[in-house]
């Protein structure tokens, strides 16, 4: 009797491992792919040169968890495009809605960015935008969290990114091309990495940065690895995709 109970308990633990390290990836990858497709469709419809640009974003979301991407409806402005990337969208999107796509061509990742960093959001295989941080392309810090392992593991290979590698953030207006600067191993309590000036809370930002904060080491939540990237340039949608992502 006791033996049978123990064997059963062991089998359940193995079953849990199978769920955690395989099934959550399957479910989250599928959900994230659906959201990527929905975002790309809404971006195409909202493109400045599209006749549908004035219409509200269609709800192409495949499930209830995907809110309408309100945050992607920033009106395109015709600010100077070469030296100044222009302001990002300034209105905070509702929690759980998708606001951008992040391309990591070096490690072959393409993930949606949803508003919020609750586990309920991150477990969908997406990157989560820290609501207190800035929006893509804005002067300041566009900070996102994401799983390093399990639930789609969007940032599994973050350690392979090297200085200069492109990080492309796509919104309805176009592509913000960031370049990897450095990674730092930090403690989970070191919130200064998501400050407007990364690492220096309270300072006024003059540059546009991005930071990603997955777990470190893999399969542990002991530390975080913060990957910092600096905005290099903005490519408006009318100019087509930048070469970094095969445009």
């Amino acid at each position: 009797m006791l033996g049978e109970l123990l064997v059963t308990a062991g089998a359940l633990v193995l079953l849990f491992a199978l769920w955690q390290f395989w099934w959550t990836d399957v479910v989250a990858d599928a959900a994230a792919d659906d959201r990527v497709a929905a975002l790309q469709e809404s971006f195409a419809l909202e493109a400045p040169d599209s006749p549908d640009a004035d219409l509200a974003a269609p709800s192409t979301a495949p499930d209830d968890a995907t809110a309408e991407p309100e945050g992607t409806q920033g009106t395109p402005d015709s600010a100077d495009r070469d030296s100044d990337p222009g302001p990002g969208e300034s209105q905070a999107p509702p929690s759980g809605s998708d606001l951008a796509l992040v391309h990591l061509p070096t490690i072959g990742e393409l993930r949606p960015v949803s508003q919020g960093v609750d586990l309920a959001i991150l477990n969908l295989g997406v990157l989560g935008h820290y609501p207190s941080s800035d929006l893509p392309g804005e002067v300041g810090n566009f900070a996102v969290a994401g799983h390093r392992t399990t639930y789609g593991a969007p940032l599994w290979a973050i350690g392979e990114l090297r200085t200069g590698d492109p990080v492309v953030v796509e919104t309805a207006r176009g592509w913000f091309v960031y370049a990897m600067d450095r990674t730092e191993i930090i403690l989970p309590s070191q919130t200064e990495v998501i400050a407007p000036v990364p690492g220096e809370p309270g300072e006024d930002p003059t540059e546009a940065w991005m930071v990603m904060t997955p777990c470190h080491p893999k399969f542990s939540a002991e530390q975080r690895i913060a990957a910092f990237a600096r905005l290099e340039r903005f490519v408006p949608r009318t100019d087509g995709a930048p070469t970094e992502i095969g445009g």
Partner: peptide, 22 residues
């Protein structure tokens, strides 16, 4: 287990918590 039990107990394990917070 897959649909209800494991999703409930997974957040209690120290392997999945990718954000920084005070």
């Amino acid at each position: 287990c897959f649909a209800w039990v494991f999703p409930t107990i997974a957040p209690l394990l120290p392997i999945n918590d990718p954000d920084v917070q005070a």
